[in-house]
């Protein structure tokens, strides 16, 4: 009996050890990134490497703000934020139409999703030429519309699933109870798909936040986004490690915050379709 307990303990210890190694492997680069952003140049290039900076100093961040590089984070926030709001709004309505009015039958939904599978690189130059003609290169409207277009299929596909899981009887009951279609959406459908809505919004936001190809080709100076800005620090002769680290930290924070705030909904939203309540 005692040996059974001992064996169980050993197995548990082994599991914890494995979990710790895996976690450390994944967390280390992020740790290193954060530490580097607080280091002085000497500490960054010290050999052997220093595990943590001698003191917390914000010089690297100061430089970003003084040089005006930090505006890239703001540009990213604007493009990702606004395109997410538009894509969620339009996408959810379209999804409702697909789910409830069977708009376009089953085929339209699949066709819409297939748009998402197009490799961006395949259309980036045609889009560039179009934008030159429209005068949208290096403008918020150009990037926001493009990200909206790219995220719409994903939003429609996800929301169509979540809305389809809301029992139709609930909507019918609300209609008989005196609601207009809009009121049904606001009072019954949206509250019931809230988790899915937030989970989808986070993924949409993250896509736009991390998007690189379009941002690289379609921005110049005015609305450079943060991923594009970071690449500018990879110089031919020397890399600005301090700036790269500080900028990357700035760029990671919004995602951290978004995910932390939405965690509750994320978990539920992702598992929602799986378990019917």
């Amino acid at each position: 009996m005692t040996s059974a307990i001992a064996r169980r303990r050993a197995r548990l210890a082994l599991r914890y050890a494995a979990a710790t190694i895996v976690t450390a492997t994944f967390v280390f680069p992020i740790y290193w990134l954060f530490m580097t952003s607080f280091k002085t140049p000497e500490e960054i290039f010290a050999s052997p490497p220093q595990w943590y900076p001698g003191s917390i100093q914000f010089q690297n961040f100061n430089v970003l703000f003084l040089d005006g590089d930090a505006i890239a984070v703001w540009n990213s926030l604007v493009t990702a934020g606004i395109s997410t709001v538009i894509a969620m709004f339009l996408g959810t309505l379209a999804a409702y139409s697909l789910a409830r009015f069977k708009t376009g039958g089953d085929n339209l939904a699949v066709w819409i999703l297939s748009q998402r599978m197009m490799p961006p690189i395949a259309i980036v130059f045609p889009v560039f030429l179009l934008y030159v003609w429209l005068g949208w290169v290096d403008s918020f409207i150009g990037l926001i519309l493009l990200y909206t277009a790219f995220n719409l299929p994903y939003v429609i596909w996800m929301m169509r699933g979540y809305i389809g899981d809301v029992p139709l009887e609930l909507e019918e009951s609300a209609q008989v109870d005196g609601c207009t279609r809009w009121q049904v959406l606001l009072k019954v459908v949206f509250p019931l798909v809230r988790s899915g809505l937030f989970a989808t919004a986070v993924f949409t936001f993250v896509f736009a936040w991390n998007e690189f190809i379009f941002a690289l080709v379609l921005t110049r100076t005015e609305i450079v986004t943060y991923p594009v800005q970071v690449t500018r620090y990879f110089g031919g002769q020397s890399n600005f490690w301090a700036k790269i680290a500080a900028m990357s930290v700035l760029g990671t924070l919004p995602i951290f915050i978004a995910v932390a705030m939405m965690q509750r909904y994320l978990v539920r939203g992702i598992s929602m379709g799986a378990v019917k309540g």
Binding site: E169, L170, E172, S173, A174, V188, P191, G277
Partner: peptide, 9 residues
Amino acid sequence: FQNYALYPH
């Protein structure tokens, strides 16, 4: 309705 159709939230 047959399945009650109560609003779960």
